[in-house]
C-alpha cells in the first residue's frame, strides 16, 4: 500500500484534515473517506457530470481530480450547496418543476446549477443553462424540467 498524504481543505465551509492515498480521486475521498455520498459515481471518466463539485469557484468532475490536489482549497458538494440560499432555491425549484426522476444525476445538476447561477446570475437564460449543463447527462427527464428549474431558481424571489 502506498503511503498516505495528509491534506487540509475547506469542505462545505468547514476545515477538514484527512489522510488519502496519492492515487485516490476527490470523488472517492468524498464518498469513502468522508462519507458524503451525495456526489455520485456514474462514469469515472469526466463524461457524465454526476460527480460535479465546486473547487475554488470552478465546477469540476471530482472523479478526475486527485484528492491530494484538494489541499488548501475550498470544496463544495451538493450537501454544501443545499445549505446556501441559492441552493435552497434550487432544491425547491428542482422539486416543484419536476426536474427529478430517478435522481441519480440530480446532485451533479444541482452543483452545476449553483455554479451557473453564481457565475452568471439573473442573466442566465435557457440557452445558457442548456450549454451550462451540457456536461451533465440525464437519462430520465429529457432535460426540459431541469432547465425550467434552473431558470426559476436563477430569478431571486421577491
Amino acid at each position: 500500500m502506498s503511503p498516505k498524504v495528509e491534506i487540509s481543505f475547506t469542505l462545505n465551509g468547514t476545515e477538514r484534515t484527512v489522510a488519502v492515498a496519492p492515487d485516490m480521486s476527490t470523488l472517492a475521498m468524498l464518498r469513502e473517506v468522508i462519507g458524503l455520498t451525495g456526489t455520485k459515481y456514474a462514469c469515472g471518466e469526466g463524461e457524465c457530470g454526476a460527480c460535479t463539485v465546486i473547487v475554488d469557484g470552478l465546477s469540476l468532475n471530482s472523479c478526475l481530480m486527485f484528492a491530494a490536489d484538494c489541499d488548501g482549497r475550498s470544496v463544495t458538494t451538493v450537501e454544501g450547496v443545499v445549505d446556501t440560499p441559492v441552493g435552497e432555491r434550487l432544491r425547491d425549484a428542482f422539486v416543484q418543476a419536476g426536474a427529478v426522476q430517478c435522481g441519480f444525476c440530480t446532485p451533479g445538476m444541482m452543483v452545476q446549477a449553483k455554479h451557473l447561477i453564481d457565475s452568471l446570475g439573473a442573466s442566465l437564460d435557457r440557452e445558457a443553462i442548456k450549454r451550462g449543463i451540457e456536461g451533465n447527462l440525464c437519462r430520465c427527464t429529457g432535460y426540459v424540467k431541469i432547465v425550467d428549474a434552473i431558470a426559476a431558481a436563477a430569478q431571486p424571489k421577491e
Binding site: L36, T37, G38, T39, T77, V78, E79, V82, L90, R91, F94, V95, Q96, G98, A99, V100, Q101, G103, T106, P107, M110
Partner: peptide, 14 residues
Amino acid sequence: AKLDAPDKASGKTR
C-alpha cells in the same frame, strides 16, 4: 411534485 424529490435533490437519497 414527486414525494422523493427533496431528498434526491439534496443528495440525501441512499
